[in-house]
C-alpha cells in the first residue's frame, strides 16, 4: 500500500499573544493543539467545526504559510514542515489553495491572464510563450469561463466567477492536493452548488485530493468522502461520510448535526442546544475540551483528556463514553 498523499502528525500551532509594554510573549492561543489525519490521493477530507476551532489554521499550516509549533506535515513521504526554502518551493506546487473570500483572494490590479500565469511561471511549467498561452486558455475552459475574460481585471467579475478564477489559479500549478478554505461559504446557494460540482468534476478529472474546510454540513455531506470534526484545536471525531451523518458518536458531532436544517417543511429534528460559549483557546479547559458544554459530561471528562479511539472500521472518536464499560448513553 502506497503512503497517503498527505499525513499530518500531531500538528500544533500556538500563536503568541503579545501583551505588556514591550510586547512580552506571555500567553498563547492554542489554535491547533495536536491534530493528526491522513488524506489519500483523490480523496476529499472535510474539516468541520464552528468558527475559531482552528480548522483554517490547519489548512494554512499545510500550505506552510507559517511555521508550525510542533508536529509533522508529510507530503508524499517527505516532510514539508521543516523543508528548506528551495525544496519547499518545489513542494508548494503540489499543494494549492482556494480561499473563502472571492473578492480579496485576487489581486485587484492584475489581469486574469497574469494571475493564472504567476504559478505557471514560478514553477517553470510552460516551455514557451505559446505553451503558457495554451495553458492559460485551457484553464479558462476547465473552469468554464470565457477565454475573452483573460484580459479583464477581477473587479469585472461576479463572486462565483472570481471563485472560478481562484480555482483556475490553484489548478495552474498542477497540484495533487487543493486546500479549499471555506471555498464556497461566501457564495449564493445556486452559485455554491455550481462551484461544488465544478470541484467534484475537477477531482475526478485530475485525481485531485481535497481538504475541504467548511462549516456548512449540508455541502460537506454532498461532496466528501470522510469528515473530521474539530473542536477547540482538536479533532473529536473522524469517520467516513456515511458513519458521521448516519451514526455520529461524539456528543459534539451529534449536536453539530442536529443543528443542520432539514430541507422539508415541518420536519423536526429536536436540536441539541449546547449551553454556553466556546471556551477561550488561550486557556482551554482541562480534561476533555468539550466537558464545559457536553450534555453527557461525567467526572472523568474533567480530569483526563480522551484520546482518539477506533470505534468502527474507519471511525475514531475522542470521548470517554467510547471507552468500553460506561453507564451513560446518548
Amino acid at each position: 500500500m502506497s503512503p497517503p498523499l498527505l499525513q499530518v502528525n500531531d500538528l500544533k500551532k500556538h500563536f503568541p499573544v503579545k501583551s505588556g509594554l514591550f510586547g512580552r510573549k506571555s500567553e498563547f492561543v492554542y489554535a491547533v493543539d495536536g491534530v493528526s489525519f491522513e488524506i489519500a490521493r483523490g480523496e476529499t477530507l472535510s474539516l468541520v467545526g464552528e468558527s475559531g476551532c482552528g480548522k483554517s489554521t490547519v489548512g494554512r499550516a499545510i500550505l506552510r504559510l507559517f511555521d508550525i509549533t510542533a508536529g509533522q506535515v508529510i507530503l508524499d513521504g517527505q516532510r514539508i514542515d521543516d523543508a528548506h526554502p528551495g525544496t519547499m518551493r518545489q513542494m508548494r506546487r503540489r499543494v494549492q489553495v482556494v480561499f473563502q473570500d472571492p473578492f480579496s483572494s485576487l489581486n485587484p490590479r492584475m489581469r486574469v491572464r497574469d494571475i493564472l500565469a504567476e504559478p505557471i511561471r514560478n514553477f517553470g511549467l510552460a516551455k514557451s510563450a505559446e505553451d503558457l498561452e495554451v495553458r492559460v486558455t485551457s484553464l479558462m475552459d476547465t473552469v468554464r469561463l470565457p477565454r475573452e475574460a483573460l484580459n479583464r481585471r477581477p473587479h469585472e467579475f461576479s463572486g462565483g466567477q472570481r471563485q472560478r478564477i481562484g480555482i483556475a489559479r490553484a489548478l495552474a500549478a498542477e497540484p495533487e492536493l487543493i486546500v479549499c478554505d471555506e471555498a464556497v461559504s461566501a457564495l449564493d446557494v445556486s452559485v455554491k452548488a455550481q462551484i461544488v460540482n465544478l470541484l467534484q468534476d475537477l477531482q475526478s478529472e485530475f485525481g485531485l485530493a481535497l481538504l475541504f474546510i467548511s462549516h456548512d454540513l449540508a455541502i460537506v455531506e454532498h461532496m466528501t468522502h470522510r469528515v473530521a470534526v474539530m473542536y477547540l484545536g482538536k479533532i473529536v471525531e473522524i469517520a467516513p461520510r456515511r458513519e458521521i451523518f448516519a451514526a455520529p458518536r461524539h456528543p459534539y458531532t451529534r449536536a453539530l448535526l442536529s443543528a443542520v436544517p432539514l430541507p422539508e417543511p415541518g420536519a423536526q429534528r429536536n436540536p441539541i442546544i449546547l449551553k454556553g460559549d466556546v471556551p477561550s483557546p488561550i486557556n482551554p479547559p482541562k480534561g476533555c475540551r468539550f466537558h464545559t458544554r457536553c450534555p453527557l459530561v461525567f467526572d472523568r471528562c474533567r480530569v483526563e483528556e480522551p484520546v482518539l479511539r477506533a470505534t468502527g472500521t474507519e471511525q475514531w472518536v475522542a470521548c470517554h463514553l467510547e471507552d468500553g464499560a460506561v453507564a451513560t448513553s446518548g
Binding site: R92, R93, F99, S104, E118
Partner: peptide, 22 residues
C-alpha cells in the same frame, strides 16, 4: 494579510516578487 498574498506564497512566488507585484 490579504488572501491574494497568501495565495501568491502558495504559488511559489518569492518575497521580492511579492513586494513588487502584490
Amino acid at each position: 494579510e490579504q488572501p491574494y498574498v497568501d495565495a501568491a506564497v502558495a504559488c511559489g512566488t518569492r518575497t521580492p516578487m511579492i513586494i513588487l507585484r502584490h
